[in-house]
Design a protein around this nucleic acid. Structure first.
Length: 383
DNA sequence: AAGCTCCCCAACCGCCATGGA
DNA sequence: GTCCATGGCGGTTGGGGAGCT
């Protein structure tokens, strides 16, 4: 028992964070970026342990946090993910951009659990409580008869529980091995539930046309709603605009306690970008499944010297492609955007944010045209 | 108004994994 | 291989606001 080793050495503050502390931490991270958390309190002038600073940043100060109530889609997604992942909040949170594991955990414990209970669903097993009761009684009877405990009664229940397991979970080592897992894999395949995460898979994100997590989820969840709800793919409560707070983005990689690695930053960047793509992609998918380039302009402009430049995406062949359209000397051109191998610090930077744009970073073209020296294009969303 | 209870949620705690010395 | 620092995660706690008596 006791405080963390990082807290033992010094008399450190605990409890709620004051606005002054928040300001100090925010200013520090904004200026120097996320590096070595253990050195942050000292360098930021805080009487807190590094862990506490990290938590405060992740759960509260981070600029890309979504605030406010959970939407119905988010709620449904949490329930469906919990069904297959259990209390693995971090993994659930990874599928909900802008939400933290802590937030989801609290939401689950305070609201969703009760909601499910009201509907007669056991929140632990996601089965009807009467069925759970039955299984318990079955177990009791087996124990009473002093036989070696059998799981026969449980296996069909668990199999049905996992029948709708999203395919992307198949890559999870947690799900490897065992006949039960294989059964669920087959079941998932047979039910055409193949889907891949599109949230954090940039730059190699892929998805199956016509399917998204929300619509998939609505199928999965139909048994939770009485009467069963229908989900119209064209009706999405999630905002198509990826929102940031007014807080500035990180601008500097120089860090007194160490520098931020490209991968650290690109992870964050990828999450933000792919989240943006996802929301835009859903809208595009619902109206246009063609793979043509022309009609898929999303409204993202490129700040560069190139004329009439536009950043767009198109779907086709189970892939989501990032395209950069521009004009040089009056001739329209189109390039596929890809990072050149792993993100490098000199490839990726977050630029200053002004009142009219949110900056998402920069790309380089992989196959530059002969008549165009590829600049570093800054991508931003018009506000 | 005061006291009490409930419960939400921010923050803490302990454990574990990982990487470097 | 061992030790240590650090980060990440899930479970838990308790401060404080809301609602009730």
């Amino acid at each position: 028992m006791g405080r963390h080793s990082c807290c033992v050495k010094q008399k450190l503050r605990k409890g709620l964070w004051s606005p002054e502390e928040d300001e100090k931490l925010f200013n520090y991270i904004t200026r120097y970026g996320v590096g070595c958390w253990s050195s942050v309190p000292k360098l930021a002038g805080l009487q807190r342990c590094g862990k506490s600073c990290r938590l405060r940043w992740i759960n509260y100060l981070r600029p890309d946090l979504k605030r406010g109530m959970f939407s119905q889609e988010e709620e449904d997604l949490i329930v469906s993910l919990h069904k297959v992942l259990g209390n693995r909040w971090a993994q659930i949170a990874a599928q909900l951009p802008g939400r933290t594991d802590n937030e989801i955990k609290n939401f689950w414990n305070s609201c969703l659990k009760k909601k499910l209970m009201k509907q007669g669903i056991d929140p632990a097993t996601h089965q009807l409580i009467s069925e759970v009761q039955l299984i318990k009684e079955e177990k009791c009877a087996e124990n009473k008869s002093l036989e070696v405990p059998q799981l026969k009664g449980l296996i069909p229940a668990i199999s049905s529980l996992r029948a709708h397991e999203p395919a992307f979970l198949m890559n999870d080592p947690y799900y490897e091995g065992g006949t039960l897992i294989e059964a669920s894999r087959e079941s998932a395949d047979n039910n055409n539930y193949m889907i891949r995460p599109v949230f954090d898979s940039l730059p190699n994100f892929e998805f199956q046309s016509g399917l998204d997590l929300v619509s998939f989820n609505s199928n999965l969840l139909s048994n939770y709603h009485d009467p069963p709800r229908t989900m119209d793919q064209n009706h999405l409560e999630m905002s198509p605009h990826f929102e940031f707070s007014s807080m500035p983005s990180l601008t500097n990689f120089d860090h007194p306690g160490g520098t931020m690695s490209g991968s650290e930053f690109s992870n964050n960047f990828a999450s933000r970008m792919s989240s943006l793509f996802f929301h835009e992609a859903k809208d595009q998918c619902s109206t246009n499944n063609s793979s043509s380039v022309g009609g898929n302009y999303t409204g993202f402009q490129m700040s560069s010297s190139v004329e009439n430049a536009a950043f767009s995406w198109c779907s086709g062949e189970n892939k989501l492609d990032c395209l950069f359209q521009y004009q040089v000397n009056g001739t329209s051109k189109c390039e596929e955007l890809k990072p050149q191998g792993p993100w490098q610090e000199d490839q990726l930077h977050i630029g200053p944010v002004n009142s009219s744009s949110v900056d998402f970073g920069s790309f380089q073209l992989t196959s530059p045209s002969e008549d165009l020296t590829p600049p570093n294009f800054d991508i931003f969303q018009q506000m």
